[in-house]
Simulated assay, not measured.
Amino acid sequence: MKHLLFVLMLGGLAALPAWAQDRFAVPVTAEVLQGWVQRDGTRMSAVHMDLQPGWKTYWRAPGDAGIPPSFDWSGSRNLHSVAISWPKPKVFDDNGMRSIGYSDTLVIPLSLTPKQPGEPVRVRLTMDIGVCADICIPHRLEFDQMIDTDQTRPTPAIAAALAQSPYSAREAGVTSSRCRIEPTSDGLRIEARVGVPHTGGTEVMVIEPGVPEVWVSESQTHRRGGDVIATSEMIHVNGGTIAIDRSAIRLTVLGSNHAVDVRGCTPG
């Protein structure tokens, strides 16, 4: 009963704007960082979160024990598009279930492309995230801020977060990316193989199918020689058929030293 009352209390607080929340009453506080103007006219900004000790939040692919984040940019002004750069996440073991995310402090870089170059961008953003300690709860962050700096020097906190981004396949020396996909009674089974030098420690591969409404099970990952191999089950959440485009599949290898982001795979 105490846990239920705690969840209900925090659920009410989650509806408040981030700037109005008491940092000691909620598990996360957040702000939008101004950043800088890049040479091509895009504006590099970021969402900066501070999590209370013992709490964590989740990566874009949070695992079976996590809650995926969502971003709603409606109401923003002079905003054409947004590119989100996720820093390398951590792998957590939650009572035998894997989740993928962040603790302590998180900076999520945002590359904002304005409709009218050189003009300020008004960011109106609603973020729905999950936060977990002994319990997991949904949480809402709301921002309304003008991004109008004329600085061209990178902000250290954002630059550091960008430096923590996964390596590209080229940067990591990936030699191959193959996917074997087979039908099952419930959906599809995928075996992904990435030829890549060791990324450090116990490696975990995350498989993202690149299509909506498809649940992907926690991957079973192991290394064999120069390949990292992972298998997962894919099931349509509404029971429908699954059409997979291998070029849209995203494979992320997470190691203790660095991560590798691989886009697409070939049959095999």
Rank of each mutant, 00 (worst) to 15 (best):
D94Q: 13
Q220V: 14
V253R: 02
V206W: 06
A83G: 05
I244T: 05
T266N: 10
L112T: 00
L106T: 05
L79D: 03
M44K: 07
G101A: 09
M127A: 05
M44Y: 04
A192W: 00
V37F: 01
E31L: 11
T42I: 01
N78F: 01
R263L: 15
I129W: 10
D245M: 09
S76H: 08
Q116G: 05
L13S: 06
G264R: 07
L5Y: 12
R60T: 00
M49I: 06
R250D: 09
I129S: 05
G11W: 11
T155L: 15
P114D: 03
A160C: 05
I242W: 02
R250K: 14
L16V: 04
P114Y: 00
Q151A: 15
G225H: 02
V262W: 05
T266R: 14
A172V: 01
R23F: 08
G200D: 00
E31P: 04
K88V: 09
G66Y: 03
P69K: 08
N95W: 09
F71C: 09
G63R: 04
R122W: 12
R170H: 11
Q38Y: 01
G187D: 04
T105L: 06
P166W: 00
I137N: 04
N78E: 02
L112R: 00
R224S: 15
I229G: 08
S256H: 01
V196W: 00
G75M: 10
P17G: 01
D144F: 02
P27I: 00
V28Y: 04
K90I: 01
G200I: 01
V214G: 07
I181R: 08
K115H: 10
M146R: 14
S81T: 08
Q151R: 15
F71L: 15
A157E: 15
A20S: 13
A46D: 07
F92R: 05
V123R: 01
S70A: 13
R189N: 13
Q38D: 15
T175S: 11
I135S: 09
E191Y: 01
R140P: 11
A65W: 02
A133R: 14
R180H: 11
P120L: 07
W59S: 06
S232N: 10
H3E: 14
V237P: 00
S247A: 14
S232D: 07
A20P: 04
F6T: 14
P27A: 02
R77D: 13
L125A: 01
S217W: 04
G66P: 08
I84V: 15
D128M: 13
V26W: 03
M146Y: 11
T155F: 12
V174M: 07
S219D: 06
P62I: 01
Y58A: 02
W59H: 10
Q34K: 11
I242M: 03
L162G: 05
V107H: 08
E233I: 12
D94K: 11
K2V: 14
Y102W: 07
I242F: 01
S85V: 13
C132I: 06
S45H: 05
P89A: 07
L162C: 04
M205G: 11
A259V: 02
V123A: 12
L33W: 09
T57D: 07
I244K: 08
